[in-house]
Amino acid sequence: MTTVLIVDDQPLQRYGFRMLLDSVPGTEVVGEAAHGAEAVRRAAQLRPDVVLMDIRMPGMDGIEATRRIVATGARSRVLVLTTFDLDEYVHAALRAGASSSSGRASL
């Protein structure tokens, strides 16, 4: 069973991701967070396999939340999502410790 924490400041986005992920056998959404600080707390509490992280949120953004989750040494892999076509977001997410498709980030 792969456990997932969904992080997005838009409730409708979280709902859509939850519906999609709940339909995948072997996947369980264990929680949601609406901003980065909540994501850091929930990741420590729930210890999900995957954190599905929005990159732009008010307050603590997804980059800083990713950095903090990874810094704890937790086993969670962070997958960062964005609708913005900006290379600097991708690079910042990888430098913060987000997972790449190969499981290793290199720039």
Score class of each variant (00 low, 15 high):
L86W: 02
I55S: 07
F84I: 12
S23R: 10
I63V: 01
L52Q: 03
D54P: 03
R18H: 12
L86H: 07
M19L: 09
P25W: 10
I55N: 06
V70I: 11
L79A: 13
A74W: 06
V80R: 00
L79M: 13
M57A: 02
A37H: 12
E28K: 14
R77G: 07
A71Q: 02
A39E: 06
R18E: 13
E38W: 10
A37D: 07
R41Q: 15
V78S: 01
V70E: 01
A74Y: 04
D85N: 08
P25F: 09
T82E: 06
R56P: 00
V50R: 09
G62E: 02
L81Y: 13
D22W: 10
S23L: 05
G31P: 10
M57D: 04
P48Y: 13
V80C: 09
G59V: 09
I63P: 00
A39K: 05
L79C: 08
V70W: 01
Q45M: 15
H91I: 03
A34K: 15
D85G: 10
L46K: 12
R77K: 14
R47P: 00
P58G: 07
V51W: 02
E88D: 04
D85A: 11
M57G: 00
E32R: 15
G59N: 05
V50S: 09
V24H: 09
L86V: 09
Y89F: 07
A74P: 05
R68D: 03
V29R: 04
M60G: 08
A43P: 01
G73I: 13
A33P: 03
S76K: 04
L20C: 04
V24Y: 14
D85Q: 07
G62S: 01
E28C: 12
A43V: 04
D54A: 08
L46C: 13
V78D: 06
V40I: 08
G62N: 04
D85C: 10
Y89N: 02
R75M: 14
R68P: 00
L21Y: 11
A33T: 09
T83M: 15
R42H: 07
R41G: 14
P25S: 15
H91C: 00
R56W: 08
V80T: 13
L86D: 06
L86M: 10
M57F: 01
A43S: 12
V24R: 13
L52W: 03
L52K: 04
S76A: 15
L81F: 15
D22I: 09
P58Q: 11
L86C: 08
V51A: 05
R75G: 14
L46A: 11
V80I: 05
I63M: 01
F84C: 06
G16A: 12
A71T: 01
T72Y: 04
V80F: 01
M57E: 03
A34V: 06
L86I: 03
A44W: 13
R56I: 08
A44I: 14
M19S: 05
M57V: 00
L21Q: 10
D54M: 05
S76Y: 06
Q45F: 15
P58A: 07
A34Y: 02
F17T: 09
A34N: 11
A65D: 01
L81D: 11
M53H: 08
F17N: 09
L81G: 15
G36Y: 02
